[in-house]
Amino acid sequence: MGELSRIWRESEHRYRLMGNRCGNCNQVFFPIRDVCPHCHRESIGKMKPVELSGRGEIVSFTIVHDTPPSFVRQRPYALALIKLDEGPVLTGQIVDAENDSIEMGKRVRSVFRKIGEDGKSGIIQYGYKFVLE
């Protein structure tokens, strides 16, 4: 229950892959940053929202066997670092694929899935996962 407002605050970013771009150096970030780590002060007030396409490629991945309790039903699941076409790298599951068909470098696109839930009576958390193109 304690994560209610935090999860709500971030929904737009998780649902639609809303990142932002530094108005100074044009680098794109996901998740969003209030300050550009390269431009620092010069970027304040210049960070602009950008909706990312969700397309990218697999940098590296693992098949997770030892999972936290909330992920047991999905065991074993594929977790990857994905480099989106716009530049940022993020962490997400790869679903609907045979685990042995996943390879570094393959193209993926994002899909809208349930990430978790706060028990049987709590809020359901949605966000991004990826499928092979």
Binding site: R73, Q74, V95, K114, I115, I124, Y126
Partner: peptide, 9 residues
């Protein structure tokens, strides 16, 4: 449906 799919997704 996969366990991470529901009517909303």
């Amino acid at each position: 449906p996969s366990p991470d799919e529901d009517v909303i997704t």
